[in-house]
Design a binder for these strands. Sequence first.
DNA 1: CTGTTAGCGCCTTCAG
DNA 2: CTGAAGGCGCTAACAG
Lengths: 359, 359
Amino acid sequence: MQNVAGKDRREQDGVTMAGTPKPTLAKVAERAGVSVASVSRVLNGLPATPEMTKRVTEAAEALSYVPDAFARSLRAGRTFQVALAVADIGNPTYVAMMRTVEAALRPTNYRIVLYSTGTDTDGELAFVESLRSGTVDGLILQTVRARDELLEALAELPMPAVVIGNLPDGADVDCVRTDSGLGIGLAVRHLADMGRRRIALLNGPVETAPGRIRLQGFEEAMRARGCTVEPGMVMECADFNHHDGYLAAAALLEEHAPDAIVCANDLIAMGALRALTERGLRIPQDVAVTGMDDTDLAAMCNPPLTTVSLGAEERAGLAVELLRERIEDHERPVACREVVPSLVVRESSRSVDQFMDRS
Amino acid sequence: MQNVAGKDRREQDGVTMAGTPKPTLAKVAERAGVSVASVSRVLNGLPATPEMTKRVTEAAEALSYVPDAFARSLRAGRTFQVALAVADIGNPTYVAMMRTVEAALRPTNYRIVLYSTGTDTDGELAFVESLRSGTVDGLILQTVRARDELLEALAELPMPAVVIGNLPDGADVDCVRTDSGLGIGLAVRHLADMGRRRIALLNGPVETAPGRIRLQGFEEAMRARGCTVEPGMVMECADFNHHDGYLAAAALLEEHAPDAIVCANDLIAMGALRALTERGLRIPQDVAVTGMDDTDLAAMCNPPLTTVSLGAEERAGLAVELLRERIEDHERPVACREVVPSLVVRESSRSVDQFMDRS
DNA sequence: CTGTTAGCGCCTTCAG
DNA sequence: CTGAAGGCGCTAACAG
């Protein structure tokens, strides 16, 4: 595990691909005929004679010197790197977060070290522990299931961390959360308002935290609206993706005739749209569909998908903010931010009346 | 630009968030009552007495010591980091590449430093130059337009680079390319084979390399099939995205009645699907549609989208391979790999006959 | 087999 | 205002 050392260090190290030797502070000093300390000072903008400044600048320019980031980090105790870890680097929701983090960090010249922890919880743990080697100044971790072990590992880290996800109460870690159960409720209420009664749920696996929370949110909202949750109208997809959503929708339609389908995320919803269309069912006239996450895809669907935004970008932005605050001040008390879900209505759930109005 | 030094280095540096001082080699040596060199050796698996091994291991364990990655890098001259730069971190094609690179690099315990260069070519250049500070051992750069300036900057780098994209002939850089013009030809031929004659093109901006190449490929393929390219049947979207694709398709359908639409990428195609459906046109019975890139989205479309795969994953995989080869051997001659486009047929372009067969 | 020592490249006290 | 020297944490020579 740690025998990764540079045993086979190559002779060519320290030369550009073109063969020029990589300039160092000492080289610049030699060329300028001054001490390394002076070069360092000039290059860092500390006071110096115009003459000195000139000579150093010219020498540095001539050698096209650039300070070595690693040496500087070793010395400064800061790496100017931030780790960003998501479960799945290909999931649109996490892509949106990555994008936001990247944009927020760009002007700060912090680099982003990217990790994909995978769906197994061991991946997360291994990743967090690997950070003990001190490659980053801070960490943003999107997690679907925060075990105690993970929280302990985070506490052991020498650098601050912010978790995007739901933590057990009293966890001693900065976090940004949202309540997707509430979000599902928004969708249910909207559909009920539109006159839909036979509302089905296409959920993800209930052994995941999001799956559990969304199911609960669905049942509560249905109860609150006086709708009954018929057995068989709640299907569990093998995973939160398009294909499994398609399969679950197909199975659902085999046995039942819902007039609305609430999906646990946009990918599942896209599968549902497809399954419905294949059966000649019109959306939303025959069946309304809602997704969740408000990914880019939702607006691109055919028809465009009503969905519940969980503020992925906003959460990512808040995470960056919390992290920066804490990097500045390690002593700041633990903070948690919550983003409230909101409904984004598009074609896939407009009422028939509204639909008529448009034509 | 370089006054990023650790002026405000904090006192808390070197302690975990829990307050424990961060263990160092010297600490372990002290606790074990041996020299730092011995600790280093034991931890790196070099020969040692069982007794020595035991004492060191125990001490390291007790302090839960982890070597500092930066110090090790400084010493070894290797960073165990690879930079991955794409134009747009949110574009599904680049997401697929990122995912592949991540998967390929994970077992090597190389870390990925992620950059989004943006669409402006200056972003790319600035990014490449920033790497001169030596933060990575190698670089994979997806580029849409490789200027000479960029190639020069790459040549100046002290570490190897692999470009994903089309380079001018004779460029002295490893690269992985594909010919999207050929890919468009595949789509045109397929549609013509299906009996479509009035084939339109929804292109991206022609001032981009992909836009230019795809237009050219379209015209050539049409000519080869004896189809005429009617003026007005080639539309240029403002950008390679869904919304602009929708607008362009709408404009196209206002004036013309194509029986097939070739789109410059999957996002544009999704916009086209939507515009067609809104007008009550059936896909593929009335109008066939093809996309390009074979992104995840293509299979999730409604209906599923016929598209041309440019082997994004394969290209990314090859790029990793080339980079690793060159990190092993800086002297290896410049290599280029080419991935040939292939057609992926789905519902959006099946012939009416085929369609009948299914029902 | 183990300990001592000399740097990797940089910044920052301390004298001059 | 400038130069010399020490050390960040680690590894690879060299001695013992």
